[in-house]
């Protein structure tokens, strides 16, 4: 499979995503510079983490107007798989490809730590390799990861199974105590209505080898690869 990893000025998870996809999982992966107005030949587009454009003004707010984003939107509208991680999730929300917004954490601090995620939907193109209710261990690293959506949008997300991951205890309970940023209903990752765009705050690309503490992130990439293989 061929993954396109978008690089904005200030992006820093591009190398880690490349490492997980190429070096660990043996996939083809290329970087796409933010000034490209079109691209072709990709099976999936990755919007990695970082501080695009310094995240000045508001996280993701400037990147959303970057030349490459029109092409990403077209790709998504045509049904292509798009995953936004951390800053990528923030950009997808700003671009309107995902509902809701990511606010500063309720404790007003940046947090880098391991979290546990309960898989809420194990049928999606991003989570089919997971078991029902499986708990994944991955790192987060962000300040603005506090997911917010209004009641209507939230009800829609829940009803359509668009909530894919929630912060949980290691045994899968959803409690406020393990919510690292104040996110509504402990939401850590959501899909668009069509199911081909995922945004998540935790970093699956950092949970790619046992030496680094977890391989659970690979389940997400493997789910995508599996979906792509079946649909090609």
């Amino acid at each position: 499979m061929r993954f396109g990893i978008v690089v904005f000025p200030g992006t820093w998870s591009d190398q880690d995503c490349h490492y997980a996809l190429h070096d660990v999982l043996g996939q083809e992966a290329n970087h796409i510079w933010h000034k490209e107005t079109q691209f072709s030949g990709y099976d999936c587009i990755v919007l990695p983490g970082g501080f695009s454009y310094g995240d000045y003004l508001r996280v993701g707010a400037i990147a959303r107007f970057s030349p490459v984003m029109a092409a990403v939107e077209r790709f998504a509208h045509d049904g292509g798989l798009v995953i936004g991680i951390c800053n990528g999730f923030q950009i997808l929300c700003e671009a309107g490809l995902l509902p809701g917004a990511l606010l500063p954490s309720s404790h007003l601090q940046y947090r880098c730590q391991w979290v546990n995620l309960r898989v809420e939907n194990h049928y999606s193109s991003f989570s089919s390799e997971c078991e029902k209710g499986q708990v994944l261990r991955m790192p987060i690293s962000h300040y603005e990861g506090n997911y917010y959506a209004d009641d209507t949008a939230l009800a829609g997300l829940q009803a359509n199974g668009q909530v894919v991951f929630r912060y949980s205890t290691p045994s899968g309970e959803i409690t406020q105590q393990v919510n690292p940023n104040g996110s509504l209903h402990n939401i850590a990752g959501i899909l668009n209505r069509e199911g081909n765009v995922l945004g998540m705050m935790p970093h699956p690309e950092r949970a790619c080898e046992l030496l680094l503490g977890s391989v659970d992130g690979n389940l997400i990439w493997e789910s995508m690869i599996d979906y792509l293989e079946r649909s090609s």
Binding site: W12, S13, Q15, D16, Y19, A20, G49, Q109, Y110, R111, C112, Q113, P139, S141, H203, E205, R206, C208, E209, L211, L212
Partner: peptide, 14 residues
Amino acid sequence: IYRQYDHQVMNNSV
């Protein structure tokens, strides 16, 4: 202190 610093980016932190 250190939870406010990204200590895992670059995928090398063991």
